[in-house]
Design a protein around this nucleic acid. Structure first.
Lengths: 234, 234
DNA sequence: TAGATTGTTAATCGATTAACAATC
DNA sequence: TAGATTGTTAATCGATTAACAATC
């Protein structure tokens, strides 16, 4: 048995924790999961990579590689056990252990996330919201209290909440992130269109709607405004 | 002058329209844009790649390559003109021409997007919402009417709306996409965690929150449950 | 057994980074 | 001019895909 403990966490300017799975593979796992849960509901117990790939639009090898990262072992000729595969993905992603989270920014988007019950199936429970607007502080949104941002770092420490969600305007995001770090929060899910400056060891994931919007509008513009590109001849 | 018209749009199983800019670069452009607008507001008129990179956490070459795709030309020694660069990015992304969009799924997330005024600065105007829930049809959310999904394809054609936003539950998403395609919609911004099956020529971008959540929970789990990986010795 | 499917190693492809030339 | 910075070509790196071996 080979035990492989990675302690390179504290140093390293580029790889704070060399991921043993490529980011794109990681991002595809929930998609397989969703698909498999649906299969299971329909009573299907075994599945092959080609079948999964065919249904989701990937080539079989890619599916196989992705699934292998979760540690699943398939049987030649018959494929994988659907329930086993589901459990394997859930365990791998840590969806069995609930992460409690604080959300900052009780605007439209924040409210939407607070009301998203389904997150609890995927290891996420938002336990409280925070804001700086006195009109919002004291409200309850989807059964969660809206507290003053001042209380965040203290409460995060006392409740050992280690996940923070930022749904504030861009201008406020950095200050919120600073508060979160002060409170010992380990990971930040950032919906504000800003690159946050945080210590090395804090995990940050951006959900930047404007990036997607940029791609969409570029492609639409390209399609409608006839794709002509001018270049100065040399 | 070299004119380069790309007509490979209709065929090609892999490259429906070979992008002349890598997807990651495209996704970074809005970030530069945001940063530059802020600079401009502070009265700064010229900027170098190393400065931008230093502030946003990229190396200078990468910034330079990204910006070059927009067609901007800089001056050695002095860098780029801030206002020119802003305009260059906006033109490149097509943010000057407004895209009108239909949104389907007037739940929490849909409501949040309907209320997001800032989108209009980035070429997006959501003109109406749709739903199948009779309780919602007829309502007005953030000054936009909620109509019956039945009306979508007809209205999309008559108003030549070519962008659709899906904020329905996973189960409903495919049917909605089908309606959109029927109505002649060209591009879909999909927030449902499902891989949509649409014709080749339809542009689809997924905003899959569960992908991000997967990454976050995997990394958190990895951090807290001591990163030990067992492998069977050979 | 034969053949389908997993598992694994090698080749390809695209994005990032490095090295260097051009220019103000 | 000298030096900073852009522009461009080459090298590197990581993810995807192809080729093939192992196995039920």
């Amino acid at each position: 048995m080979v035990i492989d403990i990675n302690l390179s966490n504290l140093a390293g300017p580029k790889l704070p924790n060399p991921p043993s799975i490529p980011q794109p593979s990681l991002a595809r796992l929930p998609q397989y999961h969703h698909y498999l849960v649906d299969l299971e509901a329909r009573g299907i117990t075994r599945i092959s990579c080609s079948q999964i790939g065919g249904d989701l639009g990937y080539i079989p090898v890619q599916v196989r590689k992705d699934l292998q990262y979760t540690g699943i072992i398939g049987k030649p000729k018959t494929g994988y056990s659907v329930p086993e595969l589901i459990r394997s993905i859930e365990t791998f992603l840590g969806w069995n252990n609930i992460n409690e989270a604080f959300l900052v920014g009780a605007g439209n988007l924040g409210t939407a996330l607070l009301g998203h019950e389904r997150f609890s199936k995927f290891g996420l429970r938002i336990v409280a919201a925070f804001d700086t607007d006195p009109e919002k502080i004291g409200l309850w949104i989807h059964e969660k209290a809206v507290l003053s941002l001042d209380q965040l770092s203290d409460l995060a420490q006392r409740m050992s909440v280690h996940l923070g969600i930022i749904t504030t305007p861009a201008e406020a995001a950095q200050a919120v992130a600073d508060e979160m770090v002060k409170g010992g929060i380990q990971a930040i899910w950032n919906f504000a269109p800003v690159k946050l400056r945080v210590p090395e060891n804090i995990i940050v994931h951006n959900e930047d709607l404007y990036s997607t919007l940029a791609s969409l509008s570029w492609k639409l513009a390209r399609r409608f405004n006839v794709p002509i590109q001018e270049k100065e001849a040399v």
